[in-house]
């Protein structure tokens, strides 16, 4: 690994001020993606600003009808949080199946969402629950946040501080994991509110998206049978050694059906 300079941030302001000192300064959160990427020399920042231990970015609280999760909250903390389990079971289910226990102990919500890996789990909950991404500069709605593969609405050196998840009537997450990496080949998050049923899909395409066909069917009848014979167009779906685009399209229907079954 190339040498780099390290700065442990004292506050969000300090982090933002420091990171611009480097030619290619980067924020370090849990490091579960950045460190492997640096080892492979796919990234070689000359400066790392460590925000992983900022208390102000860590923790879970209830604010009216919203669950607010600090950006540096680890997956293990979300998985075990009584607040999350009571109000947003789908979010706890999702956190509990990310990677492996050691990844969940280090990896953070903000790190995962900012990285926007097409096969990351968290984006499904962010879009499914219609969450708001709060940064040091502004608040971005989930619908406008994920733009493309590894691309978000974040500007350079903008830090996610917290994500606000509206409490919904019912929520759930199910994925078909790659047996080696545990990344979802397809992951489906369903949120049921008074007004709508939202179905967000990760892993299938370049970035997380809402499956309108499944939403329409489930709004009419919240039953696994409603998803039978659902055929999705898969032109833009990912194709790799693990699954064809056609197979991913099929998996969406299968995972959504199983999830609906478990949520009823």
């Amino acid at each position: 690994m190339y040498p780099f300079e390290y700065h442990k941030a004292q506050s969000v302001e300090d982090a933002v001020a420091q990171v611009t000192r480097g030619d290619d300064g980067k924020f370090l959160a849990g490091g579960m993606t950045l460190i492997p990427t640096m080892k492979q020399r796919l990234a070689s920042p000359d400066l790392l600003v460590d925000i992983g231990q900022l208390d102000s970015l860590n923790g879970i609280r209830k604010d009216g009808d919203t669950i607010v999760v600090g950006a540096m909250t680890t997956h293990a903390t979300v998985e075990r949080s009584p607040l999350v389990n009571a109000h947003l079971p789908g979010l706890a289910q999702l956190a509990a199946v990310i990677g492996d226990p050691q990844v969940r102990n280090r990896g953070t919500l903000g790190g995962s969402v900012a990285n926007a890996d097409p096969a990351a789990d968290y984006p499904a909950a962010v879009l499914g629950l219609n969450a708001s991404i709060v940064t040091d500069k502004r608040t971005i709605p989930a619908e406008a946040f994920f733009i493309d593969i590894f691309e978000t609405a974040l500007e350079e050196h903008e830090i996610i501080t917290e994500i606000r998840f509206p409490i919904v009537k019912n929520s759930g997450y199910k994925k078909f994991p790659n047996p080696a990496s545990h990344y979802p080949i397809v992951g489906v998050f369903i949120a049921v509110t008074d007004d709508e049923t939202r179905v967000a899909v990760t892993g299938a395409a370049g970035f997380v998206f809402r499956c309108e066909e499944a939403e329409k069917r489930l709004a009419a009848r919240f039953d696994a049978a409603a998803l039978e014979d659902m055929k999705l167009s898969h032109e833009d779906f990912n194709e790799d050694i693990h699954a064809t685009a056609d197979y991913r399209a099929h998996l969406i229907a299968v995972m959504a059906s199983r999830l609906v079954e478990s949520m009823r």
Partner: peptide, 23 residues
């Protein structure tokens, strides 16, 4: 050395982690 095998697992402040994927 790619955070997959877990031979490097230790505990830090009470929680397990892969020590090959941390500075």
């Amino acid at each position: 050395d790619t955070s997959q095998c877990g031979a490097c697992v230790i505990h830090a402040n009470g929680a397990s982690l892969k020590s090959c994927t941390a500075f």
